[in-house]
Simulated assay, not measured.
Amino acid sequence: MIDKNDKIALRQILMEHYTDPDHKAPVTPMPNSFIKYQDSPTCSDEINVQITYENQKVTKAIFDGVTCSISGAAIDILCDQITNQSKAEALKILSNYHNMIVGEVYDETTLGELIAFHNIYSQRNRINCALLGADGLRYILEEEVK
């Protein structure tokens, strides 16, 4: 488990996912895939998130666009965590993450690297950054995936 009090380790997680994301790739329409455009109301961040859903699982989650370090790292980690999950499991991850970001009760034992964002709720101007990609993923799963 990651120590949420180790500021150096948390910063390292953020920077690794921002500077060398595993899930940043061109977003193109494909069978069984859904795309959602997300733009921030408070800055210039804008991304497309894409989920491929097959055999009752998220088989691929990617994003592309312009991000700050918070939104870029968050969507990269989220894509990693929801891949190979069922719709219900992915939504549970997204809900738990959302609760943490807005300062509500959450289960920190299931967050993995997302725990790096545990203090975002105290930085009100960064909440939109941390939720930009998550909101797009949640929209796809709730509204598009049947």
Rank of each mutant, 00 (worst) to 15 (best):
D3Y: 07
K4L: 09
K4S: 06
N5S: 12
D6S: 06
I8D: 09
R11I: 09
L14I: 08
M15Q: 02
E16F: 04
H17W: 04
Y18L: 00
D20W: 00
D22P: 00
D22H: 13
H23S: 09
H23F: 13
A25N: 13
A25E: 15
P26D: 12
V27F: 04
M30N: 14
S33G: 09
S33P: 08
S33M: 12
S33I: 12
F34M: 08
I35F: 10
I35T: 10
K36R: 13
K36S: 07
K36Y: 12
S40Q: 08
P41V: 13
T42V: 14
S44R: 10
S44Y: 08
D45Y: 07
D45P: 05
I47P: 01
I47L: 11
I47K: 06
I47H: 02
N48E: 10
Q50F: 10
T52C: 12
N55K: 15
N55H: 15
Q56L: 13
F63D: 04
F63G: 00
T67D: 01
S69E: 05
I70F: 04
I70H: 04
G72Y: 01
G72R: 02
A73D: 03
A73E: 01
A73M: 05
A74G: 03
I75E: 00
L78T: 14
D80N: 09
Q81Y: 14
I82A: 06
I82Q: 07
T83I: 09
N84G: 12
Q85L: 10
Q85K: 13
K87Q: 09
A88P: 12
E89G: 07
L91G: 08
K92G: 02
K92E: 13
S95W: 08
S95A: 14
N96Y: 04
Y97G: 05
Y97F: 15
N99W: 03
N99P: 05
N99S: 02
M100Y: 03
I101T: 04
V102W: 07
V102M: 02
V102P: 03
G103I: 07
G103V: 06
G103L: 03
Y106P: 00
D107M: 04
L111Y: 00
G112M: 00
E113C: 00
N119E: 11
Q123I: 10
R126V: 11
I127D: 01
L131Q: 03
L131H: 02
L132F: 11
L132T: 05
A134F: 07
D135Y: 12
G136I: 07
L137A: 05
L137R: 06
L137V: 05
R138S: 12
R138T: 12
Y139Q: 08
Y139P: 02
I140N: 06
E142F: 09
E142Y: 08
E143D: 13
E144G: 04
E144I: 09
E144Q: 13
E144P: 05
E144L: 14
